[in-house]
Design a protein around this nucleic acid. Structure first.
Length: 273
DNA sequence: CTCAGATCCTGTGCGC
DNA sequence: TGCGCACAGGATCTGA
């Protein structure tokens, strides 16, 4: 389900319900995620206090009085805060039960997400250690992106979706930001000028920020932390608009497959080369 | 080293 | 209405 804005919105939503609370127990109904949920998850976490909640890339990190819980939502995961006695549905794989009568419930139909315990500095953990800069941070600059594009034959779309280059830019926002700067998604990264990298960097930051400000409602089936459906409020200009007229020039939007992902673009506004 | 493609899994929505 | 197929928001691994 999530792009970065949805993950950030989820983090912000669950934060006030979790911070300062004590974990009473963890129930794992299905441990088979991208990585297996540790068999002793309950023992590792019970009795510990949740001291803080943070986000790195599309990972959500619960800081415990000792250790951390690292959560990723994959393609189809979501987190909700529910009264602990709420009956679980089919894909509610994990409940983190608090002592205050509420639970953090992890649901993930496709099970591409993960839910693991980390003892030490999570940023040195193999899942996080090699991640590129946060797109909204000062470390993600146009100079940086320009340098990363040098000598790279891969498409610019694949490059900005690569977590080692910059995190949090998924298929939707990669597609949209390239439209907004008029760059064909298949353009080899090395062909981008400094000026193009500058526009693209600015646009990525801007679109992510406005989506977060809008409450992360990019996705049709996004549900907020309390289970309310987010309404599809982020206006997407090309993603999901195949064969529909471009808002800028009326040309029909086309799609191509790049590195296995569908990519929508306007052939007129985003000419190749 | 680079890069394209396959892969994990289930649900949805479309055309027939 | 039912069936089969294409496709879906991510990230990692394999092998050319």
């Amino acid at each position: 389900m999530p792009e970065l804005p949805e993950v950030e919105t989820t983090k912000q939503g669950i934060k006030p319900h979790l911070e300062g609370q004590i974990i009473n127990a963890i129930i794992v109904r299905n441990p088979k995620l991208r990585l297996p949920v540790p068999f002793n998850m309950d023992k590792l976490c019970s009795g510990k206090k949740i001291t803080a909640i943070s986000r790195r890339a599309k990972y959500i990190l619960l800081h415990l009085s000792q250790g951390y819980v690292l959560i990723h939502l994959g393609m189809s995961g979501h987190l909700r805060i529910v009264p602990s006695n709420t009956e679980p549905t089919k894909h509610d794989h994990i409940d983190l039960i608090l002592t205050n009568g509420l639970s953090l419930r992890y649901c993930d139909p496709r099970r591409f997400g993960l839910f693991v315990y980390i003892n030490d500095n999570p940023h040195q953990h193999s899942l996080l250690a090699h991640l590129g800069p946060e797109p909204l941070s000062k470390d993600f600059t146009s100079d940086y992106l320009y340098r990363k594009t040098r000598n790279k034959n891969i498409s610019i779309k694949s490059l900005i979706m690569n977590n080692q280059v910059v995190v949090g830019v998924g298929n939707i926002y990669a597609t949209e930001s390239l439209f907004l700067v008029g760059i064909h998604p298949q353009t080899p990264a090395k062909k981008l000028t400094e000026r193009a990298c500058n526009s693209l960097t600015i646009q990525i930051k801007q679109i992510l920020k406005s989506a977060i400000d809008a409450g992360g409602t990019t996705l049709r089936d996004f549900y907020t932390f309390d289970g309310k459906p987010g309404y599809f409020s982020v206006a997407l200009k090309v993603y999901g608009r195949k064969k529909q007229p471009c808002f800028q020039c009326n040309e029909l939007i086309e799609t191509i497959v790049i590195a296995g992902r569908h990519s929508a673009f306007c052939p007129q506004c985003q000419p190749y080369e």
